[in-house]
Design a protein around this nucleic acid. Sequence first.
DNA 1: TGTAGGACGATTGTAGGACAATATCAGAGG
DNA 2: CCTCTGATATTGTCCTACAATCGTCCTACA
Lengths: 244, 244
Amino acid sequence: MSNAAAESERTSTGERDAPSRGEAAPPAHGATVAFIVEQLREDILTVRIAPGSRLVEGDLTARFGVSRGPVREALRRLAADGLIDHRPNRGALVRRLSAREISEFFQIRVEMESLAARLAAESDDVDARALFAAAIRPILADGPRRLPDYLCENAAFHEALMALAGNRELRDLAMRLHLPLIMAQVADILTPDVLGASVREHRAIAVAILKRDAQGAASLMRAHLERAAALALKPRAAGENSME
Amino acid sequence: MSNAAAESERTSTGERDAPSRGEAAPPAHGATVAFIVEQLREDILTVRIAPGSRLVEGDLTARFGVSRGPVREALRRLAADGLIDHRPNRGALVRRLSAREISEFFQIRVEMESLAARLAAESDDVDARALFAAAIRPILADGPRRLPDYLCENAAFHEALMALAGNRELRDLAMRLHLPLIMAQVADILTPDVLGASVREHRAIAVAILKRDAQGAASLMRAHLERAAALALKPRAAGENSME
DNA sequence: TGTAGGACGATTGTAGGACAATATCAGAGG
DNA sequence: CCTCTGATATTGTCCTACAATCGTCCTACA
């Protein structure tokens, strides 16, 4: 903590942002909460803030130079998204997913994503199909990936898939399945060959979708995620941070 | 959670306006927000507050006799649950589900609930099975239902199902699918025969689960929800409050 | 008369300080 | 060594004030 400072003054009518460092000052009126949420989300998903850490309101007000109101609202929002745990009178902790939770999320995700794959394959929206094709172009490229590239591609793939599927609520709900969080917490198992295999599976799914093979797309997706689940759970089962 | 009463006055510095009517005073410290959320949720789900109504912070502070802080937090929470729409600088509206949204929710729900049915049927947890059997007993009874009874039974059925399925995250996620909200907004189509059919379907699903027939339970559930979706969407498509 | 622009009111967004309630932790006492 | 009690840290809530924004209405001008 203690990196406060950042904001010596931002008051009244004067300009309120001296982006100085670390944290750019929150943008104009009405976006403060969103800004804080975004910053914290970043920090959590990149594990800049470790799972299990406490998020103390006082520290955050100092860090962002805002009052407790927006901070509290931001925390509620993160809690609603499932990124933090909020215990009454005890504050917020960065969520740490147990093996059980990861397993449950994958179980759900299998269904949601294979539904999305089916819907995407069945879509008749030519524009959306074109966008999808464009969005997955990077995935079709061969060659090895670095981890950040892969994470980015992966997110883009799922995003494009959801867009083509055309079910907005499904997209929103899928966000709550914490794929990025899981990724961050099991990043250690993402070895180059695992990445390669995953990319190839994505490619196969994409092809099936473009061929309008709903059945194939759905089952490829199912297989893909079941494999991913097995991977994500294997090392944890053999004893690291699955205590509690 | 002892309810209400308990607190006629709680400030040492002086009584705070004694709202005393309509709403019982919020319970002890730390539960104010939860109390407000619960009240409003009730009001929304029973359509005491019509979909599309504005929820003005000032009105709510007056109604509940609390300050804007808890009210705002309660609104955020309802927004996170999807019960209200929150537009920046413009306040909150009670959410009105469009036909499209209802359709999308059902599409998702089909997958989630049939997954749950499958998991429930496959469960080996004897205690949980016993609890399930007990919970669905009312559903096995014959005879016609009144609407409120049905709604209650229905909620209990889905709850018991989720409990037996044993995937907590699935349970949480299913809550976000707004079944009660949908029910409330299409209550007009729940005629006695529709209710009867629905109860019979529930019964069939329950039997399949108790017989450990995963395949059957899942497909019965799928059929059940697809039928429900068709029903929920039929009258709206033909023009009532689907405008805007 | 019709429209553009500005004044005004209503409401939300945020600040900041105050206090009560609760959890946590450490030290005193058995 | 264990238990109880106090100090401390943190959250939950209230309050007041003000800035920013949205909507509306009203007026001025073409």
